[in-house]
Simulated scan of single mutants.
Amino acid sequence: MTYNKHILWAFTAALATGWVLSNDEGCYYGTVMKHSCNWTCMLLTLQWPGSFCIGLTNKTICKIPLTIQNWTIHGLWPMHTGHCCNCWPIFHSHLQEIEPELTQLWPSLIKGKHFFNFWREEWIKHGTCAGCDGAMGSPLLYFQAAVKLRKLFDINSVLESSGIKASCEVSYKYDDISKALTSLLGDNFDLQCVTDSKGREAWIQLKIHLSRNQTIGCPTEKQDEAFYNLAWYKSPGHPCPKNTTIFFVPINYDNPHEPCN
């Protein structure tokens, strides 16, 4: 396997800063990169801030900045069956070039959690696997790719053009939301919901299926059971039900964990 110059530089930096772990952790360079590069598909996961706090067990830790008014990025996740490596460091300086965009499109909605800490976690968990692809072969390239994809998929405009707007009074059929998104995404997406305190289904996340080259869709033969199991792994909610209506709740900055009460 041939590694690009970004990865070679990153490994050198990791050695210099002591970030490479022992072989017991699976973090020797050759082993890790071969293991974590064995993926074909990705998920771009977008989250709706209006519903985000509903899914939290601790209702006191959620805070939605007033500047956040649209879908935000939860992560760009290679779908692989192994684990990524925490031996590829990321520093705040790596992202300064795009920090204004990240602050708006990929914010932390957890009170007291610095945005960079959220980005660092996503890089360690997912970006280090994505980084073996040349187009995402550094922290900056990885986050630039996510921002570009988020801008490409203008979910709010598609929903509004179909008459789907955030509301506490109006709910929508699964098929109506799905039909609206199909014009932009085809059938390459999953809808994820959380249940609020009154038993209502609230749309929280949209998971968009992408190929490794960042184009929409994933090869049919790769969309197996393992892919879908990983797609929901450690998610805060569940697949949106098709037999009941779904609420697309508004953002409530003052009472984010009970946006419709």
Rank of each mutant, 00 (worst) to 15 (best):
L141P: 01
L141R: 14
L141T: 03
L141G: 03
Y142M: 08
Y142H: 11
F143W: 05
F143H: 11
Q144F: 06
A145E: 08
A145N: 14
A146G: 13
A146R: 03
A146P: 04
V147P: 03
K148P: 02
L149D: 06
L149Q: 08
L149M: 06
L149H: 09
R150P: 03
R150L: 03
R150I: 06
L152A: 05
F153N: 06
F153H: 13
I155G: 06
I155K: 04
I155R: 01
I155W: 03
N156P: 01
S157C: 04
S157G: 03
S157L: 08
V158Y: 12
V158F: 10
V158C: 07
V158A: 14
L159G: 02
L159E: 05
E160S: 08
S161R: 13
S162M: 01
G163L: 06
G163K: 07
G163P: 02
G163S: 05
I164E: 01
K165E: 10
K165I: 13
C168Q: 02
E169G: 11
E169C: 07
V170T: 15
V170P: 00
Y172C: 06
Y172E: 07
Y172P: 04
Y172F: 15
K173D: 15
K173E: 14
Y174S: 12
Y174F: 15
D175Y: 12
D175E: 14
D175R: 14
D176H: 13
D176V: 10
I177L: 12
I177K: 08
S178N: 09
S178E: 11
K179R: 06
A180P: 01
T182N: 11
T182W: 01
T182Q: 14
T182F: 08
S183E: 10
L184M: 15
L185S: 07
G186S: 00
G186F: 00
D187A: 00
D187I: 00
D187L: 00
D187S: 09
D187G: 10
N188R: 01
N188D: 07
N188W: 01
F189A: 02
D190L: 13
D190W: 00
D190Q: 13
D190S: 10
L191Y: 03
L191P: 05
Q192I: 06
C193R: 04
C193W: 04
C193H: 06
V194Q: 09
T195L: 15
T195D: 09
S197L: 14
S197M: 12
S197H: 15
S197D: 14
S197W: 14
K198D: 14
K198G: 12
G199M: 12
G199T: 15
R200N: 15
R200T: 08
R200V: 05
R200P: 03
R200D: 10
E201W: 10
E201I: 11
A202F: 03
W203M: 15
W203N: 10
I204Y: 00
I204T: 09
I204K: 00
Q205A: 07
K207I: 09
K207R: 14
K207Q: 12
H209M: 12
H209Y: 14
L210E: 04
L210S: 02
L210Q: 05
L210I: 02
S211I: 00
S211C: 07
R212N: 00
R212H: 01
